[in-house]
Computed example of a mutant assay.
Amino acid sequence: MNKIRGSAAEAVADISAGASLAVGGFGLSGVPEVLIRALHAQGTSGLEVVSNNCGVDGRGLGVLLAAGRIARVTGSYVGENKEFARQYLTGELEVELVPQGTLAERLRAGGAGIPAFYTPAGVGTQVANGGLPWRYAPDGTVAVASPPKEVRDFDGLAHVLEHGIITDFALVRAWRGDRHGNLVFRRTAANFNPLAAMAGRVTVAEVEELVKPGELAPDEVHLPGIYVQRVVKLGAEDAADKQIEKRTVRA
């Protein structure tokens, strides 16, 4: 039951080239920065990443992206990252754009053992009809486009079939956790971290505050330890390192 690992490097050591990763975070909130940096340091490449967004230049998944370590991204938001746009438009990166609510449910469904589900989101658009550019050729033409999906009527309303997502690994960041892997997320960090954690066959969590088993009341726990295989306790400096994506102040 003791899932603590001695370091982030140890916790991600078996993530090999070509692995698929579900990564938590929403903007720059709740991003597993320490695990991402450890993965970058070990040189793993060809990664297929599923995440709401792909970080920004120099932070979060943007670190792996800039180093050319990511081959494919499934996400719902790709702004704030010029390198992401460059790689996508030049054909270096394959990108599957998914409506945000659909992405959340695809991750949850994968973790819950649900292979697929129907949703009205995307009906009548390229999300359902196909043709979204997944990968461009160097000359700017579309090299790989999304395929059409099954559409079915329920009570007179069209729904598109979406598949659950299961990845080889998941990397998440939690506010509090124990050595059994029970996790609590704080505010915006609770948006995608629990869902990403559910989708990974092996889930690694970096935790800002490690508590003893039993200190977390059952109704406090956002993600039970059954979904988590490894826990890394952050040092004080890493736990406090929370960059603001866009700082707005009064004149």
Score class of each variant (00 low, 15 high):
1 M>P: 09
5 R>L: 13
12 V>C: 03
14 D>N: 11
15 I>Q: 02
22 A>W: 00
22 A>M: 07
25 G>S: 06
34 V>Q: 02
35 L>S: 03
40 H>K: 06
44 T>R: 07
46 G>M: 08
48 E>F: 07
50 V>M: 01
51 S>F: 04
55 G>D: 03
57 D>M: 08
63 V>E: 09
65 L>C: 08
66 A>F: 04
67 A>P: 07
69 R>K: 14
73 V>P: 01
74 T>H: 08
77 Y>L: 09
80 E>W: 12
81 N>W: 01
82 K>C: 06
85 A>S: 13
91 G>Q: 05
94 E>K: 10
99 P>Q: 12
104 A>E: 08
105 E>W: 09
105 E>H: 12
106 R>N: 02
111 G>A: 06
117 F>R: 00
118 Y>K: 05
118 Y>N: 06
119 T>E: 09
119 T>F: 04
130 G>R: 07
131 G>R: 02
132 L>K: 11
134 W>E: 14
134 W>M: 14
136 Y>V: 02
138 P>N: 10
138 P>M: 11
140 G>H: 10
140 G>L: 10
141 T>H: 14
151 V>P: 04
151 V>N: 06
162 E>Y: 13
162 E>N: 09
166 I>W: 04
169 F>W: 15
171 L>F: 07
172 V>Q: 04
173 R>K: 14
175 W>T: 01
176 R>E: 13
180 H>R: 14
181 G>K: 05
182 N>L: 03
185 F>I: 03
192 F>T: 02
192 F>H: 05
194 P>C: 11
200 G>K: 01
202 V>C: 09
204 V>I: 15
204 V>W: 02
205 A>N: 07
206 E>Y: 02
206 E>L: 01
210 L>C: 02
215 E>K: 12
215 E>Q: 14
216 L>M: 14
217 A>E: 14
218 P>M: 08
219 D>P: 02
222 H>L: 08
225 G>A: 04
231 V>E: 01
232 V>E: 06
233 K>A: 15
233 K>H: 12
238 D>Q: 15
239 A>C: 09
241 D>N: 14
242 K>H: 15
243 Q>H: 13
246 K>P: 02
246 K>G: 06
247 R>K: 12
251 A>N: 10
